[in-house]
Write a protein that binds this DNA or RNA. Structure first.
Lengths: 149, 149
DNA sequence: TCATATCCTACTAACACGATAGGCATAATG
DNA sequence: CATTATGCCTATCGTGTTAGTAGGATATGA
């Protein structure tokens, strides 16, 4: 069970934007080099983030991206949910496709199981905001004299 | 974030074995038809479950599989961990492969994040036993007159 | 000795993922 | 107004993982 790179990149991007709010907008290329993410891949991620209402953009020369809301109002969960869909769910197996979306009664215990786990994950990620994450990143950069971020 | 079919099948298999403990051992073919899992695929899963000490087997004619421990002593977490490895972890991206396993200081906030989530998931799955799951399945089969399991 | 099992390895088709590419649309700037 | 810097959009591609198949060796009970 691993988080996708896309989600990881998205999270880093949003945190990066929080860390560079003072600079005004950030061009995709700048974010990409700061976070070491393939530019064109990042562009796609930024499109999703924009469609999801997490970032906004300014087009044309001197344009770029910026957070749609204050970092303290953006949860890690909201970013993850946007990128991953369900935070923790059952497989969409061939077997399940065969059966259609007929949720047989013997599926119920499983659905309940996954729903509980997902709730636990959500509870955990909902209360961590992007500002907390950026604070932590800042702190770790300072204590280790690593200013590359 | 979806659980793999393999894990799903494994869980169903273990629960199935719990439900059919009285019948003695269950041949892979019997489990496969009861749970509608491709037989040969199931065989591989059973090998993993055996290697992981969750089931034991009896070879030859009249042989089959059975649980190595009482269902109440087997947690959903143990099955999942065996099949999935980490319950919830960071991606192993190309970027990360480039950097080697050099856990840079700015990775720490992320590692902490994932570790917390994984702990939450584990806590949740650790306390659900296979006997609880099989009880639930039995209950749902009865209330809906669906005896096919 | 035959039927019924597990056990083991190799292979394959389909799909998801990570990434790349190219070009259009828009806006600032000289 | 031309140029340049940017976002926006779609298509494509390589690779690895996943889900599933296949075939046979090995063991055991009748």
């Amino acid at each position: 069970m691993r988080v996708s790179s896309k989600t990881d990149y998205a999270l880093r991007t949003v945190i990066d934007l929080a860390l560079h709010m003072d600079d005004g907008v950030s061009a995709a290329a700048r974010i990409a080099e700061r976070q070491d993410i393939p530019v064109k891949f990042l562009e796609q991620i930024l499109m999703i983030l924009k469609a999801g209402g997490i970032v906004e953009s300014k087009r044309g020369a001197g344009g770029g991206y910026f957070l749609a809301d204050p970092p303290s109002h953006i949860s890690v969960a909201s970013v993850m949910r946007l990128m991953e869909g369900r935070l923790f769910g059952p497989p969409v197996s061939a077997q399940r496709r065969r059966a259609g979306s007929v949720s047989s009664s013997k599926e119920l215990p499983f659905e309940e199981l996954w729903a509980n786990v997902e709730a636990a994950v959500a509870e955990n990620l909902e209360k961590i905001s992007i500002s907390e994450m950026s604070d932590r990143v800042r702190k770790h950069s300072h204590t280790s004299l690593d200013f590359s971020i």
